[in-house]
Nucleic acid binder design. Structure first.
Lengths: 141, 141
DNA sequence: ATAAACCCGACTAAAATAGTCAAGTATCAT
DNA sequence: ATGATACTTGACTATTTTAGTCGGGTTTAT
């Protein structure tokens, strides 16, 4: 299972973006400043988000990024997938043909990790960017 | 969030152990052979499990390890905690005083990771070693 | 006695992470 | 036109984590 800063940054940045989305393209510089994330790193992250069509870029002065879909339609799964934060509980899955740990049969805990993966993915499938923005506004009030 | 081979090995090894537990102490050598896990690595892992009183050791020839509690009473949370696989979704939690990402306030996604952590921990709290052994026997039949 | 096992601490190669850096290209405002 | 702003791309790198390895113990059944 992987879940690191890259995924967290991606989600944070998109929540930030979603809040300002209606008005203008949002520059990474602004997100960088507001969220305290390295600009160079953000560029890497947004490059991936763009390739997966989660955001669109607007080049030139006054440029930046805008959401490519409605916030409600962007699920956390999409975001984390885009930045390669696969929710993989174990290597078991990688090498299905030859079983787990190089053995011919499934390892003793194979089903467990499968279940966990489903459990976590359910969580991410339900949450949309809109939920997060909403959650955020409410808490501030 | 961390969930790597160490945690997986710990769980696998304990399921193995639990299956043979009634008869004799189980040596790490046997577990190593059956599960394809390095003996030296297993020793590190069991050292931690022993310190957290999940297993007891029996030294000398014919020695090995036995469960220190009933399989039903050993939850996955206990196992993963013991080997330092804290289910930490993010650093946010480490530095609560100064907020997230060095900012004075909670980061935009703080609540999200909190929720996820709870979600995962619920899963681990419900699963006992007995469940896993049972699951395993059933599948074989 | 000796072999089987646990016990312990230090070391290390490889991979992953979280960036940084350099050299672009596109576009807007003036 | 031209400069400033901002995206684009790819390569590089320091640090940390992971998954071990290694070398020495100590204990105990036989």
């Amino acid at each position: 299972m992987k879940l690191t800063s890259k995924g967290r940054y991606a989600v944070m940045a998109l929540v930030d973006l979603a809040k300002f989305n209606d008005i203008n393209p949002v520059s990474l510089r602004d997100i960088s400043l507001r969220q305290g994330i390295s600009l160079d790193y953000l560029e890497q992250i947004f490059s991936k988000l763009r390739k997966k069509e989660i955001v669109q870029s607007v080049r030139g002065t006054q440029g930046g990024y805008v959401l490519n879909k409605k916030a409600k339609e962007i699920k956390l799964t999409n975001i984390l997938d885009a930045v390669d934060e696969k929710v993989k509980t174990v290597q078991c899955k990688k090498e299905l043909k030859k079983g787990c740990n190089g053995k011919a049969t499934k390892c003793l805990t194979h089903n467990l990790w499968d279940e966990l993966e489903t459990h976590i993915n359910n969580f991410f499938d339900k949450k949309s960017l809109e939920d997060l923005v909403q959650d955020n506004i409410e808490r501030r009030v």
